[in-house]
Simulated scan of single mutants.
Amino acid sequence: MANYKETAVAGSSYTRCNQLLISNRLGIAPKIRFDEQVVVSLESGGSIVTGSGNIEIDFDANKQIPLLDTTTGEATGQTVSYAMAYTILHSAYIAAALERDAAQGV
């Protein structure tokens, strides 16, 4: 049986991280999960997005992350430790919590 309204399509696809989950439960070593999706960009201008799995890693404070230029994807030659990334995210959380508290008059 033929597929209803079947048409050939042209375009390109790429994989991206659409969600980052940091599990920081009390008394348990932290884990980081990167959820991925595949984006199919159609020449017609539309796109199709589907989940494609995840990567889960144990937090290693000493591990280095090679930094990439966000617009080109090229390596910058710089690195940052997971400990520094943790410090940045912790600071972002505290800043957001303090803003919320101030807005609530706490």
Rank of each mutant, 00 (worst) to 15 (best):
T50F: 06
I32T: 12
A29R: 15
T79G: 06
Q37S: 04
G73P: 10
D60I: 13
K63I: 09
V38L: 05
Y4K: 14
F34Y: 13
G27E: 04
T72M: 04
N18H: 14
D69V: 03
I88K: 14
A8V: 07
L68M: 09
D60K: 13
I22L: 15
S91R: 08
G53N: 04
C17D: 03
L20N: 02
G46W: 01
K63E: 15
V9H: 03
A103Q: 11
L20V: 14
I88C: 08
A61F: 02
A10R: 05
V9N: 06
D35R: 05
Y93Q: 10
A61R: 14
N18W: 12
Y82M: 15
Q64N: 11
I88F: 12
D35M: 08
E74P: 03
V39S: 01
T76K: 07
T79D: 03
Y82W: 15
I22G: 05
S52W: 00
E56R: 12
Y14H: 06
P66M: 10
M1P: 09
A29F: 04
A96E: 06
A85Y: 09
R100P: 00
H90I: 07
E43C: 03
A10G: 07
A2C: 02
S41F: 00
K5V: 03
Y82I: 07
N18A: 05
A8H: 05
I32F: 11
T79W: 10
L21F: 06
G46N: 02
I48R: 01
A102L: 04
L98R: 07
S91V: 01
I55C: 06
T87R: 10
F34W: 09
T7K: 14
D58T: 10
A97R: 11
V80M: 15
T50K: 05
M84N: 13
I48Y: 00
I28E: 14
G53M: 01
N24Y: 05
P66W: 00
V40W: 03
A8T: 06
G73R: 06
T70Y: 06
I48P: 00
F59L: 03
I88W: 09
G27T: 08
D69T: 06
A61N: 07
T72G: 03
K63M: 13
E56V: 15
V49G: 01
L67G: 00
I57D: 04
T70G: 13
P30Y: 01
I65Y: 03
A92N: 08
A85T: 04
N3D: 09
A97M: 14
G77R: 04
V80L: 14
T15K: 08
D101E: 13
D58K: 11
T70H: 08
Q78W: 13
I32L: 14
Y86N: 15
M1W: 09
L67T: 10
D35I: 03
S44Q: 04
M84G: 06
E36M: 11
E6C: 01
V106A: 08
S12V: 13
A85I: 11
V39G: 00
S52H: 00
H90C: 08
S13Q: 10
E74G: 04
V40Q: 02
Y14I: 00
I94Y: 01
T70M: 13
G73D: 05
I88G: 05
D101Y: 07
D101K: 05
T71A: 12
A95G: 07
I55E: 12
D35F: 07
L89Q: 12
R33Q: 12
K63C: 07
S13D: 05
L26W: 12
G53P: 01
Y82N: 12
A96T: 08
T70I: 15
